[in-house]
Amino acid sequence: MGITVKAEQCTGCGRCVDICPGDLLALLPQEGKAYLRSARDCWGCMSCVKSCPEGALERRLPFSLAGYGASLRPKVHETHIVWTLRYPSGEVEEFAVKTREHPGRA
């Protein structure tokens, strides 16, 4: 399962390709959209999901571990991240966590 890419939202910017620690994402040569070349090799670190400006990527746990129907979406802001956790029931839980002290400083 790994990562699913919503083709209609993907602009082919390549940020996910650039960031994946396992070099698992690539752009399709014809369509120019991102795809996961080896779903089984995904670690689940969600670096690609966080990097996508369009929210086109989603983490899916392999079915051998987890049932269908839940989702976890991060939205990265300058100094914090907001996670939206959706349960199979439709219930939604949100988490906002600080990530940086200074937006403009290294």
Binding site: G44, L61, L65, A66, G69, W83, L85, P88
Partner: peptide, 16 residues
């Protein structure tokens, strides 16, 4: 866990 291992949070939700 979201700061380090988000899989677990998704796993708990997916499996109830």
């Amino acid at each position: 866990y979201l700061d380090m291992y988000p899989n677990l949070v998704l796993y708990w939700a997916a499996n109830g």
